[in-house]
């Protein structure tokens, strides 16, 4: 698996898109820090961008890489390697290279702007960690879709739909749910609803660490009580981890039965 991972990673790290992605974050980091001149202000803006962009890029890259490397995958399949290692290797290769672009792209400007002297270092780290999680989650999800649909156009379409669902539609349904039960105590519902979507979970985790959490008011108190406790922190990271593991497990299962 490590061999496949290594070469997938090599391949992607040299691709133009990795550079563009990396340079985008690098530019974003520097521009925001230049505009705000304040790490904490920049953190919140970057959060908005990370929560939308990492899932989108992860989804698109995952699907693209799968379809792009299909023939090569066939070549690998004819070699004496276990199937699961090929797919696991490719998946981790894609996700790692994207995560690295994010990590370095944002890390470099923040470190040069004196992040280590700033009290924002933990918030910033949390931001990067959730960004990395989201990358792994959405690459895994999109790999699942690509494995299920041999038709590229279908695969792409569903991948975009998947992103749209988690980034937008889910929140819409969630909001409707909250509004229709607004006569009942719904802070638990709000808690559960925002934990089940990895994008929402990441957003809430980060917001609670920032000053802006005061806007959460009473609901925020319930959230803080939960996420502030070690159980809450552990269970939310367990949830994020589950979002990585379950789709990965399905990649392995799906790939085992698939014809090429």
């Amino acid at each position: 698996m490590l061999k496949i991972l290594k070469y997938s990673f090599y391949d992607l790290m040299r691709s133009r898109w990795s550079y563009i992605y990396f340079l985008f974050y690098l530019a974003l980091g520097f521009v925001l820090l230049f505009l705000f001149n304040d790490v904490s202000q920049a953190v919140i803006t970057i959060m908005n961008i990370i929560l939308v962009l990492t899932p989108l890029i992860g989804t698109i890259f995952g699907v693209m890489y799968y379809y792009d490397s299909r023939e090569f995958t066939e070549l690998l399949l004819s070699q004496p390697i276990k199937r699961r290692n090929i797919f696991l290797g490719q998946y981790i290769g894609v996700a790692t290279s994207l995560a690295l672009s994010l990590f370095l792209g944002l890390g470099i400007p923040f470190v040069t702007y004196g992040l280590f002297q700033s009290s924002e270092i933990w918030n910033f780290s949390l931001l990067l960690v959730t960004g990395v999680f989201l990358t792994f989650i959405f690459v895994a999800l999109s790999y699942n879709l690509a494995l299920s649909y041999d038709n590229k156009i279908k695969g792409f379409g569903f991948a975009i739909l998947l992103w749209l669902f988690f980034a937008v539609i889910y929140d819409g349904l969630f909001l409707i749910l909250l509004l229709s039960f607004s006569d009942y105590p719904i802070d638990k519902l709000a808690l559960i609803g925002s934990s089940l979507n990895p994008i929402d979970l990441s957003r809430v985790l980060i917001l609670l660490k920032l000053d802006i959490s005061a806007l959460f008011g009473y609901t925020g108190a319930v959230f803080k009580q939960f996420f502030g406790s070690s159980t809450g922190m552990i269970s939310s990271f367990a949830l994020l981890l589950a979002w990585v593991i379950l789709p990965t497990w399905r990649i392995l299962r799906k790939s085992k039965r698939k014809d090429f």
Partner: peptide, 13 residues
Amino acid sequence: AYLPQIAQFPHNL
């Protein structure tokens, strides 16, 4: 040993 019909490799290797 297998020689496939279409040869496609990772572009950047």
